[in-house]
Design a protein around this nucleic acid. Structure first.
Lengths: 244, 244
DNA sequence: CCAATCAGAATTGTCGACAATAGAAACGGC
DNA sequence: GCCGTTTCTATTGTCGACAATTCTGATTGG
């Protein structure tokens, strides 16, 4: 099965995408998404040939993408044993949250210091609009909006390195965050917290915004444990339904 | 030239290292070091075949190593155009220093909170010993000690994610730091600053240590510009003398 | 019944080959 | 003499093949 003859490099993805998307970047993005969503089970070995067959490419682009993901900490690697899905660990989540809190605090402070009034007003408007539509969004969409809120602030900080590191953390805690979004959806506290942060930014209240941001991000070990429990349940109950 | 016949995977590195070091990790480490030291000129295109020939391997391990280094921000990549050495830029250095300062402050605070008296005493002793021997160290060795001082504190923070991020920043600013070490060597201010930080840690003075750390790391734009100027001079004057 | 050993199978590590793309040089029109 | 083509060359992207290593699980001895 699956295309025994040599293909002339283009026709992959079986006429699904008519655009000639480069396989390298496509493969990277696809595996990255899989890792973010824990489509691989924690600590599971990732079989290169199986993955290559699934994505209709050879092992070369697979391995290159996996190597990149290793330094992004989305997967791990052991010589002669291959690539593994990262674990799903309470300590890691707590530690990442701690780092994230520090960086996000710096992020708002710099944004308050450097962003224009228009930019901050745009942030408030965008989030207000998002909140109004919140009920029509799926959890996935809502998670994306949550992530975007923080990314926007990071961009406004004017420090691309800071933004990049926060994005790196975001991809690592994406799965956790999605669970938290659904939890909070019932409480709907997240959205008001974002509003408060944005308001403090408009008011140029650096200390206040930083404190709000910190409290918004800080996570208790108990909360982390509960989230991990919930996450593990999902990881091991959802079934792969997309076989070609 | 250079070994036309197929080699049976081992005999590379031409009997230099009798140990059977895995080529993958070795290649990665070697290229990484080259990038850290700006053995590639800023924004220079990195030729895969030339690099492969130089390290006596095929392009596969080269490309995998380069992909890893891309996410470490040590090199850049453009589809169908290949890999490039990162630039040597004032803004980048300033931005990285800003992030670093925030993370290192958190690092000392956590270390003060979590490290044992013995661990902190060991830190002081080690640095005292290092200072005593300082004159006998080359600039490279001294830079390594400087980096190690900060890494040790990061480890004592008990947050591996924090430590990892700082290590990532360290590799990116290694070249800058080496220049700064040589500058300060004449002033020999770095070493006393380290001593002060360590003393504040032993005294469990979190605010004091954090402030000292911040001032130790903070860099003015003017300083950064001067360092970049000096760095560019070195990059473009030093000649490759190691042609096999 | 369990532990250690040892084939056989599965998987990874690295290589050379070739097509596709980008880059450089030669060419010609103006 | 300069700018846009066109051809040719250099370089990257991806592949399949094979050796080296690890994993599996069957076998044997205690």
């Amino acid at each position: 099965m699956l295309r025994p003859t040599r293909q002339t490099n283009q026709g992959n993805s079986a006429a699904l995408s008519s655009k000639p998307i480069k396989t390298g970047p496509r493969v990277y993005e696809e595996i990255r998404r899989m890792a973010m969503d824990y489509r691989f089970k924690p600590n599971e070995r990732i079989n290169e040939v199986a993955l290559a067959a699934r994505l209709n490419v050879s092992r070369s682009p697979i391995r290159e993408a996996l190597q990149r993901l290793v330094t992004e900490e989305l997967i791990t690697f052991q010589t002669n044993r291959g690539f593994f899905c990262r674990g799903f660990d309470v300590d890691e989540i707590v530690n990442l949250s701690d780092v994230r809190a520090v960086l996000e605090e710096r992020s708002v402070r710099l944004a308050i210091q450097r962003a224009s009034d228009e930019e901050l007003a745009a942030l408030v408007d965008w989030w207000t609009l998002t909140m109004a539509r919140a009920d029509s969004f799926s959890s996935t969409e809502l998670t994306a909006r949550d992530e975007e809120f923080h990314i926007r602030i990071a961009r406004l900080s004017g420090n691309p390195e800071l933004a990049r590191m926060l994005e790196g953390i975001n991809t690592r805690i994406h799965f956790v965050r999605k669970i938290e979004v659904e939890k909070h959806r019932r409480l709907s506290t997240t959205y008001t917290e974002h509003s408060e942060i944005a308001r403090a930014m408009v008011a140029r209240d650096a200390d206040g915004a930083a404190r709000l941001m910190h409290d918004h991000i800080a996570i208790s070990v108990a909360d982390a444990m509960s989230t991990v429990r919930e996450g593990l349940a999902r990881i091991y109950v959802d079934v792969d339904v997309d076989q070609i």
